[in-house]
Design a protein around this nucleic acid. Structure first.
Ligand SMILES: [Mn+2]
Ligand SMILES: [Mn+2]
Ligand SMILES: [Zn+2]
Ligand SMILES: [Zn+2]
Lengths: 137, 137
DNA sequence: AAAATTTATGCAATTAAGTTGCAAAGTTAT
DNA sequence: ATAACTTTGCAACTTAATTGCATAAATTTT
């Protein structure tokens, strides 16, 4: 199949199967994060569980990251090329209450917060809700 | 029943039924946020749906606020006396990955973020994950 | 006070997301 | 070619959240 897609998979040590190529192709083309059921609807006949496991595999291998945007279903989006998914490089996510789309605001890092004494930070999830630029106009 | 509890309910225009008094009493005593099923387990024989609707009523009337801490079940905690639940007074929440408890960090306001142009902010959910002071020692 | 109306509660059932078990199909190594 | 391992597809299950509806309780009207 397409060379850059296989390259991506190989570089993340994920074996490029037909299914994975198709899923990664869909993911790369997204401008906003998608859920498992969004993904399911992009295929005529693909099993939800296979898609589910494909997403899990991609996530484990840092091809994508998952986003809990509070909408009730977890969304997934591509990691940036340099992303190591560590706490220091977390970015803010934006959920549009009008179009229900979830955006990675890759340019906007999660601000640091000072916790009460003896509270240890592991990670932060920051989701801004509002109206996106597309819906705004 | 207890006067202060009924006062609280009345002040928020929620009719003080026996069930609501019991539920509010439990909520007031919590030091960390609790889920519907946590609440259910605090009663011998109480219907989950009644508890569910009680929480919804409390939330609508700003007696409590709900917290999506990413644990899979929504948590609830008392609003502060002065809370109007508007975006300006949102606070950070902390989820301990060891004891699974969710804390309201009422003293820590959610930091403001500057969004891309034409993105309108409605609210922010900021959940910090880590180890709490109790588990730390 | 009785009747009518509204509100709250309890039980059954449903929805939807996420997840697991297992067997069949496909792939890679010997 | 055989064995070992990986991936896929289907069925089934789990859990949180939610709805419908009938009964019970409280409030209002007559
Ligand atoms: Mn993202
Ligand atoms: Mn809180
Ligand atoms: Zn939008
Ligand atoms: Zn803890």
């Amino acid at each position: 199949m397409k060379i850059p897609i296989d390259d991506k998979l190989n570089s993340k040590n994920v074996k490029p199967t037909a299914m994975r190529e198709l899923v990664l192709d869909v993911l790369i083309k997204q401008t906003t994060a998608i859920s498992l059921s969004d993904l399911e609807q992009k295929f005529e006949k693909a099993d939800k569980v296979t898609l589910y496991r494909t997403l899990k595999t991609f996530e484990e291998n840092k091809i994508i990251h998952s986003i809990d945007d509070g909408s009730g279903s977890v969304k997934y989006a591509m990691c940036t090329d340099t992303c190591q998914c560590n706490p220091a490089e977390l970015h803010v996510h934006f959920f549009c209450t009008m179009c229900q789309k979830t955006y990675c605001l890759n340019e906007i890092p999660v601000p640091s917060v000072s916790l009460p004494v003896n509270f240890d930070l592991q990670s932060i999830n920051m989701v801004v809700k509002g109206i996106c630029a597309n819906c705004r106009r």
